[in-house]
Amino acid sequence: MEAAVLAAVDVRKRFGALAVLDGVNLSLHGGEVVGVVGPNGAGKTTLLNVLSGSLTPDSGSITLRDRDITRKSAAERCKLGVARTHQVPRPFVGMTVFENVLVAATAGGGKRGADAYELCVRVLEQCGLAHLANRRAEGLGLLQRKRLELARALAVEPAVLLLDEIGGGLTDAESAALVEMVAGLRDRGIAVLWIEHIVHVLMQVVGRLVCMDAGRVIAEGPPSTVVAQAAVIDAYLGGKA
């Protein structure tokens, strides 16, 4: 297998006495979708924050194409091609939907003028937001806000896309469309890490599944194998099976 685009090596992060990440190793390759599942509090979002640069790990390292980016800020990592969405959408409420995406295309993607505009319009169409382009983001509903999160991340034209629960609350048709879009991004060579509670949606597109519990990776491999493992069932069902 070719070298990983993004890799985390023995990453640890504590909040006070609590070890939220307790020695996590993870690698992500171009053109693959890796799903991350695990119970609430397993450290999934913290892992994403450490990968995206929103948090600095206490120890361990993050590399992007063999380059150490552990100390790089979130903004620098974004410019290097690592884009993310937020679990609770964080739109720029005083700006229009188009302007929200434009921030990503210009600041993160380094585009200017007509190039940036074209990219934004294309991304908005792709995410089904084109008809809302001139709407202030404040007026968007939750699903539209989630789409806007995705649209902004795509406008960076990332090499690595980190998705945090963007599938929740979708209808079957909507989640099928989302799966198709993620598969399309994968086919363009983008590395996707997707945290999601709805396992059956993940199963349709991920090549590899990672299950976390209490800050550790407890299972990793082909989705069907991981889901069948006793440890995963334990972690998810919370009881002794």
Binding site: S52, G53, S54, S73, A74, A75, C78, K79, A83, R84, H86, R90, P91, F92, V93, G94, M95, E99, N100, L102, V103, A104, T106, A107, G108, G109, R112, R152, V156
Partner: peptide, 22 residues
Amino acid sequence: PLGASLRAIRDDEDAARSLGVR
């Protein structure tokens, strides 16, 4: 071109950061 970034910082500094705004 910096204007959109400035308005983004006004609305949500951390989100702006994660989209590459210095």
